[in-house]
Simulated assay, not measured.
Amino acid sequence: MAAQKCLAVFGGNGFLGSKICQAALQRNWKVISVSRSGEPDWKTSTKNGHRPEWADGVTWVSADIFEPATYKPHLASADAVVHSMGLLLEADYKDVLRGKENPISGLRKAFQTGGSAWPKSANPLDKVPGDDIPTGDASRQLTYEKLNRDSALIAAKQFVESSSAKSKTFLYISAAAGFPILPQRYISTKREAEDLLTQVQDFRSIFFRPGFMYSHERPITVPMSYLTSVSSTMNKLTGNIFGGLLGAAGTAPMDVDKVGRAVVQAIDDKSIKGPVEVPLIESLSSKLT
């Protein structure tokens, strides 16, 4: 009998992360969620406010990705790691998904400050700080560079150093494109993270590029998905001439459950590596039983 796989999900209590955890459990994998708050607040994370039964199967770890000592031991048995942070509408600290603040204004306020370029190196992980990462308030101000790029490199380094798995997979949740009213840095920092992770030879890298994701459990995402669907249809009818202008709004929206299933299938399929665009995500989601 094959050994049970172990998956660690950074941001596992979030919008997409929780769906990835659920899909992995359906395959009888061991699942570890790493996030600042640990287990989700189910009263605001599910439509009925109840804790789902599958949550019992997840090890919920409360940790700070910028403080490796708080989670590094949990990566020792991990065969795969998913970085599911820095999503377009994943901003719990601004109460965006709970409908308490406008999504765009919340995200803009959260990421107003720019960041520095990543130091040049043959192995990008060589430039990742160790356990002595600064913890002052100024160093923790979130930027696209820190959340989309730096946190992924930090998680990747800890995975390489801690995991005893012979074959490792690191899956990064990227995006199909930016969004018209968000700064270009939102997507450019994700692409930079992809480029840097590609250079790491210690694991198989997969970069998921979904469009806008929605769920009926998060009502605020549904009307936005309708608008995105309309703009996507118009973009197709006009031969994609507005693709560069619309960004992610020109890509068909996706059910977050499907994306979660596709992530697990991609990890299980050794032939999948590099960027995974929307058509392949759709195909992968239908293969998970």
Results as ranks from 00 to 15, higher is better:
Cys6Leu: 01
Ala8Gln: 05
Gly14Tyr: 09
Gly14Leu: 02
Leu16Asn: 07
Cys21Leu: 09
Cys21Val: 05
Ala24Val: 10
Trp29His: 01
Val34Asn: 02
Arg36Ser: 09
Pro40His: 02
Pro52Gly: 09
Glu53Ile: 14
Gly57Gln: 05
Thr59Val: 10
Trp60Tyr: 10
Glu67Gln: 14
Pro68Lys: 11
Tyr71Met: 09
Lys72Ser: 09
Ser77Met: 07
Val82Lys: 03
Ser84Ala: 15
Glu90Arg: 04
Asp92His: 10
Ile104Lys: 12
Leu107Tyr: 10
Ala110Glu: 08
Gln112Leu: 14
Thr113Ala: 10
Ser116Asn: 07
Ala122Val: 13
Lys127Met: 13
Val128Phe: 13
Pro129Arg: 12
Thr135Ala: 04
Asp137Thr: 12
Gln141Gly: 00
Tyr144Ile: 04
Glu145Cys: 06
Glu145Asn: 09
Lys146Ser: 15
Asn148Thr: 14
Leu153Gln: 06
Ala156Arg: 03
Gln158Lys: 08
Phe159Asn: 06
Phe159Gln: 04
Val160Ile: 07
Glu161His: 06
Ser163His: 14
Ser163Glu: 11
Lys168Trp: 13
Leu171Arg: 02
Ile173His: 07
Lys190Phe: 06
Glu194Ala: 08
Leu196Ile: 07
Thr198Ser: 11
Ser205Ala: 11
Ser205Pro: 11
Phe207Pro: 09
Met213Trp: 10
Glu217Val: 02
Arg218Pro: 00
Pro219His: 03
Tyr226Thr: 03
Leu227Val: 14
Val230Pro: 02
Asn240Phe: 13
Ile241Gly: 00
Gly243Asp: 09
Leu246Arg: 01
Ala252His: 06
Pro253Cys: 11
Lys258Gly: 02
Ala262Phe: 00
Lys273Pro: 00
Lys273Phe: 09
Gly274Tyr: 09
Pro279Glu: 02
Glu282Met: 08
